[in-house]
């Protein structure tokens, strides 16, 4: 077992505590922290697949945002199907609407991911320049196809009744939907850790990230493993897209492309190919964006870029560099 590098988590904790000192009011701080965690975990759900795919197969999919958009659109359509459950005034009934929506989003994005890997990416393994071009081209075509099927207009994605508004705990206001995002995000992270650290498949994936020729030499078909990871990553992006769409309560075709920038920043900060780094990076970006947005709105826009530059100056390969043989 590798020793865990505790400096990044300590840094996160320091930022959270430092923010408490700077903000002063504990209730505002709790609200901001929950918002930051929710945002960070949502980004983590969307980014984790991308970073694993890169780590395993050295493929950077610039069309990853597409799966996010598909997830959001499918979720919007599913919620419309379950309009009765979504409109009811009971939490369980609402859950009966958003859980199918999330599952459908993940399934649709996963299937699309399978097709995308077969048709678009398979012919260009090992050629970075072509990968960037071809995945960008695939994104152009797919965005247009979304227009063909769902129409060019903004699609409303109303949140079910009981998930709107916020809880009041004392004088702390916490938006309900953010809690859902935190719960789902933590569940995904826990499941991923279990899968990666406690199963044979996880072992193979981790080994593949470090040295894929060796895994192949042991007789495992890394290609199949890779397709599985690609599909799972796409499905997670779809799930994240569904949640993000509900969070914004509307969907446009650019929902994915606009997230891509944040996702890239997160996986660069984390170290390309590292899941732990992706998690730490996502939380860092989510928290810092919320704190800075409150403390100094003027520089909030640049905070992500600034964060990336600072992290890269400190650790040029990202928070958790992936060792490649």
């Amino acid at each position: 077992m590798k020793r865990i590098d505790w400096i990044p988590p300590a840094l996160l904790l320091a930022i959270v505590l430092g923010a408490l000192a700077m903000i002063g009011s504990p209730s505002t701080w709790v609200t901001l922290t929950v918002a930051g965690l929710a945002m960070g975990l949502l980004i983590f759900i969307m980014a984790s697949g991308l970073t694993l795919v890169f780590g395993l197969m050295d493929v950077m999919n610039f069309a990853h945002g597409l799966f996010i958009a598909i997830g959001a659109y499918v979720a919007a359509s599913t919620i419309r199907l379950f309009a009765g459950a979504a409109g009811a005034d009971s939490f369980l009934a609402n859950l009966g609407a958003i859980v199918p929506a999330m599952l459908a989003a993940a399934a649709a994005a996963g299937l699309l991911g399978l097709a995308f890997e077969r048709i678009i990416i398979k012919p260009v393994y090992g050629q970075h320049l072509k990968q960037i071009l071809i995945t960008t081209g695939g994104m152009i075509v797919a965005e247009q196809l979304i227009h063909v099927f769902w129409g060019p207009d903004l699609l409303p994605l109303p949140r079910p009744a009981t998930l709107r508004g916020s809880f009041l705990v004392g004088d702390v206001a916490i938006e309900k939907f953010r809690l859902i995002a935190v719960v789902v995000g933590l569940a995904v992270f826990a499941a991923m850790l279990l899968l990666l650290n406690r199963t044979k498949i996880g072992l193979l994936i981790r080994a593949g990230v470090e040295n894929k020729e060796m895994v192949e030499a042991m007789g495992y078909r890394i290609r199949r493993l890779f397709v599985g990871v690609f599909v799972a990553g796409s499905a997670l992006a779809g799930l994240g897209g569904a949640l993000w769409g509900m969070y914004q309560e509307s969907v446009t075709v650019h929902i994915g492309a606009s997230m891509m920038v944040l996702i890239f920043i997160v996986i660069i900060i984390g170290g390309l190919g590292s899941i732990g780094g992706c998690f730490a990076g996502a939380l860092l970006v989510g928290l810092v964006a919320n704190y800075v947005g409150f403390l100094a709105p003027k520089i909030a826009l640049g905070s992500n870029i600034l964060l990336m530059v600072l992290v890269l100056l400190w650790r040029p390969q990202g928070l958790y560099p992936v060792s490649k043989q």
Partner: peptide, 19 residues
């Protein structure tokens, strides 16, 4: 790597557009 440059320029350009 080429990929890294593409990602960084994408981030910088979108930041500039927002700015």
């Amino acid at each position: 790597k080429a990929i890294f440059f593409a990602m960084i320029t994408l981030a910088v350009a979108s930041f500039f557009a927002i700015l």
